[in-house]
Design a protein around this nucleic acid. Structure first.
Length: 616
DNA sequence: AGGCCGTACTG
DNA sequence: CAGTAC
DNA sequence: GCCT
């Protein structure tokens, strides 16, 4: 029944990573099957493989990459299918009978796991070591050692190439079940549209005998395989069906994107229901109701930041953000039910805080010499957890120690060290206003025309906080004309009046933006302050102001919301984006000009929030 | 299993 | 490229 | 650590 499985894995090697292939091979073999190769491919399994890799592999087989239509399949789903009962019953998977796939599994195990004490983390962790493959040129695990077999294979390849280029393409199609649960929705929606695109091929419906059909698992089914005549593809721009970020799938504008993305409506509905969880919609609670809990969790967050445990940081940051936005105090474990971002572990920790007022874990970790040292050292601008840990293991544990080892610091870190005390102090609103006035006056003087340039002080200043950590000043030229050297001249002019140290000098980026970071003070007696000046073209001004007004958490939330609605939001603009499995960006559309913040809110379907309400 | 925001500068 | 910052 |  499954004699010819080539539709299942036609040269499944094309862009699978070695690990993935081994996993699949394992799966097949543990089911009594055998992995064999076929030389054609129209199906690409695996989402993490790059287009480049595909192209390389194609080149290896002398195939013209651009000539092929293909689609992505979720490797998880393939694994699931393999585990499916129907396949387990099969003894063999004859994918391409001439070539025997030679697994190297016995000789080279995939990974070794060792318990290792990592100095930089000051703890014992399991370390997964990939066993290094001998990389002598072209060796790969499909090397056909038997000469005769190889000749046969190559000959067959040649034949096949001729055949396929002449008239046939094989398309594997499967039906996407729109009633899947969220997991599948989330993972699969990236290639829904690809399937949609391929539906044009459904014009021709050759009869497939029932016996040749393959049925996958319950969620996703392969309904049929078929050969499609080449001429059906005529008139289609194949280049545009190739998933390649460099070479856009289509140059559609926003409207078309929406039409071209069947999953979008469903996604929007899904997130609409959860809109309240997005602080960018809900806004900040008037007053934070769970300070005690948050403070304790923040300590833990800090510790994990120092340990560079990115995942946990995110989890705690999200939980904290959510609690901050919560408009009522948590009183009992009942209140913790069904909360997003708060799982079992964090829930337990919150209960502990409610009962005892603190966390034993924090107590234990906070006192550790290493954590104390890292917290101390990261106070310096330019020193992060990694650098701090390095210093710690060199015996440098305090700022005093750092001063004795200035040669180990770069220029910016030296400045940072020299001014730690100053830079740690928050800027009173009056002083911030003063700094802003100085900059504004200088901008007008330099441009010579009142109002030609527009400046906005963003950050917590714009959110109307009483104090702010630094000054974020955004500048744009209102008539949209060239601003060559403007920022540099502005900085030069401010050197005597405000700025004392430069951290990074402005340089034109590809988005026509310039950023300056530096330090300044309003008078010789005043405290040094961090000052950022940024010059953006006016089309990007809305997004830039939005971004630099923050807060951090508000930005993240908003960009995630954008992502879930088919966009990418950055300080440079809002782009329609097509994302594939694992959120991999497949296609980025033309920027949607947003001169005002309001434009962004409108397009994303969010209520406008005045800056004051964004301090989440 | 693997993503968790997206981008730019430094060395 | 990793580390840092916004 | 949480989520899909």
């Amino acid at each position: 029944m499954f004699k010819d499985m080539s539709f299942m894995f036609p040269l499944a090697t094309v862009n699978l990573t070695n690990t993935r292939i081994r996993t699949l091979t394992n799966l097949i073999e543990s089911n009594g099957g055998q992995m064999k190769l076929g030389p054609d491919t129209l199906m690409i399994v695996g989402s993490d493989a790059t287009v480049e890799l595909c192209q390389k592999q194609f080149a290896k087989f002398n195939l013209d990459f651009e000539q092929y239509r293909y689609q992505f399949l979720n490797p998880d789903w393939v694994s699931q299918s393999l585990l499916n009962k129907k396949l387990q019953e099969q003894k063999k998977f004859q994918l391409f009978p001439e070539v025997v796939f030679q697994p190297v599994l016995e000789e080279v195990p995939e990974f070794k796991t060792k318990l290792v004490y990592v100095e930089a983390l000051a703890k014992t962790v399991p370390v997964r070591e990939e066993v290094v493959e001998q990389d002598d040129g072209d060796i790969n695990i499909y090397n056909i050692k038997d000469n005769e077999l190889r000749m046969k294979y190559e000959k067959r390849m040649e034949e096949f190439r001729r055949d396929i280029l002449k008239e046939y393409k094989q398309i594997l199609d499967y039906e996407y079940d729109y009633d899947l649960d969220n997991f599948h929705n989330q993972v699969d929606d990236g290639y829904e549209y690809l399937l949609e695109d391929l539906s044009i091929l459904k014009k021709e419906e050759p009869q497939i005998p029932e016996s040749e059909k393959f049925y996958g698992d319950d969620d996703c089914q392969i309904t049929e395989t078929r050969k499609v005549k080449f001429d059906i593809l005529d008139g289609l721009d194949l280049g545009k069906s190739v998933v390649n970020v460099e070479q856009p799938i289509l140059s559609a504008q926003l409207k078309e994107t929406k039409q071209f993305n069947p999953g979008l409506k469903r996604k929007q509905q899904f997130w609409e229901a959860k809109k309240g969880y997005f602080v960018c919609e809900a806004g900040a609670a008037q007053k934070c109701q769970n300070n005690e809990i948050i403070e304790e969790l923040e300590k833990l967050l800090k510790i994990y930041t120092n340990e560079k445990d990115k995942g946990r940081c995110i989890a705690y940051r999200k939980a904290i953000g959510f609690l901050k936005a919560l408009p009522y105090p948590i009183k009992s474990s009942e209140d913790l039910k069904d909360m997003p971002t708060i799982g079992d572990k964090i829930k337990k920790k919150i209960i502990e805080i409610m009962q005892t007022g603190k966390l034993t874990k924090v107590q234990k970790l906070e006192g550790q010499e290493k954590n104390v040292a890292i917290s101390e050292l990261t106070r310096v601008w330019g020193i992060g957890p990694t650098t701090a840990a390095t210093f710690y293991f060199k015996g440098i544990k305090t700022l005093e120690d750092l001063k004795k080892n200035l040669h180990l610091l770069n220029r910016n870190q030296q400045v940072g060290l020299q001014l730690v005390k100053d830079l740690e102090q928050r800027i009173p609103r009056e002083e911030a206003t003063l700094i802003f006035e100085i900059v504004k006056r200088e901008i007008d003087d330099l441009s010579g025309v009142q109002g030609l340039f527009k400046a906005t002080a963003c950050g917590s200043y714009r959110r109307e906080k009483e104090t702010c950590g630094d000054m974020d000043i955004l500048i744009t030229r209102c008539d949209g004309k060239n601003t060559e050297d403007f920022l540099l001249n502005l900085i030069t002019r401010l050197e005597g009046k405000l700025l004392t140290h430069h951290l990074t000098m402005p340089k034109r980026t590809e988005h026509d933006c310039e950023t300056y970071m530096g330090i300044g003070r309003v008078s010789n007696q005043a405290v040094h302050r961090r000052i950022d000046l940024k010059l953006y073209p006016k089309e990007q001004y809305g997004c830039a102001v939005l971004y630099f007004t923050g807060s951090d958490h508000y930005n993240r939330s908003m960009r995630l919301w954008a992502q879930k609605n088919g966009y990418t939001l950055s300080d440079h603009g809002l782009y329609p984006t097509q994302r594939g499995a694992h959120n991999k960006k497949l296609w980025k559309g033309e920027v949607i000009p947003c001169e005002e913040e309001m434009d962004v809110y409108k397009i994303l379907g969010l209520k406008y929030k005045p800056p004051k309400e964004r301090s989440v």
